[in-house]
Every structure is written in C-alpha cells, then in structure tokens.
C-alpha cells in the first residue's frame, strides 16, 4: 500500500499575550518567523503544506524552544 502524501497544511500561531519577544522562534524557524524591530515575531500567515517536512520540523523546534510556550501549530484543511 502506497503511503498517501499528507493533505492540508499548517500555520504557526503565537499567543501575543504570552509572547515576551525572546526571538527563539525566529532563530529556530527563520522560514516561518520574521522579527519586527522590537523583537516580536511576525509569523507567515499563509498555510505551509504539511508535506514540507523541513518547515514542519522547524515549526516543532520553535514550539519546543519557546521559553513562554506561546506558540502552537494549527492544522489547516488547505495548503495554500
């Protein structure tokens, strides 16, 4: 049985109340997170396909690395 490619996508979401601008998410997932001039994250708003394993791994590192547990990965039905 062939493994079906994963459908759908994901978006990294930040809880702006928990975020204290440590900037770890940007270092861990630069392809998904930009940093504004005060050090807060600007996260890529459009969904990334789940098949993009590198981006998904970066996102997981960012979630794990956040000192304030302010990030989560949200799944979306479509990838773009």
């Amino acid at each position: 049985m062939a493994i079906k490619p994963k459908a759908g996508g994901f978006v990294l979401r930040v809880d702006p109340i928990l975020c204290d601008g440590f900037g770890h998410c940007h270092e861990l997932a630069p392809e998904l997170v930009q940093i504004d001039e005060w050090g807060y994250p600007i996260i890529k708003g459009t969904p990334t396909p789940l098949s993009d394993a590198d981006a998904l791994e970066s996102a997981r590192f960012a979630v794990r690395g956040c000192p304030r547990q302010a990030l989560r990965i949200e799944r979306t039905p479509t990838s773009n």
């Binding site: 930009q34 940093i35 996260i43």
Partner: peptide, 28 residues
C-alpha cells in the same frame, strides 16, 4: 528585561525585508 529586547540577528534572513506573507499577517 520583562519584554522584548531588540531583534536577534543570528539568521541571515533576519535583515531580509518582510515578504508578502509576513505583510499579510501583520495586516490581518
């Protein structure tokens, strides 16, 4: 430091201008 203390510039992407996606997000 209870809040952000400036940007981290480790990544080469740090100084890149915001791409369209990022602008969409801030507009949203």
């Amino acid at each position: 430091p209870t809040r952000a203390a400036g940007r981290t510039a480790l990544s080469p992407l740090a100084v890149a201008p915001l791409d369209g996606d990022a602008r969409d997000e801030s507009a949203r």
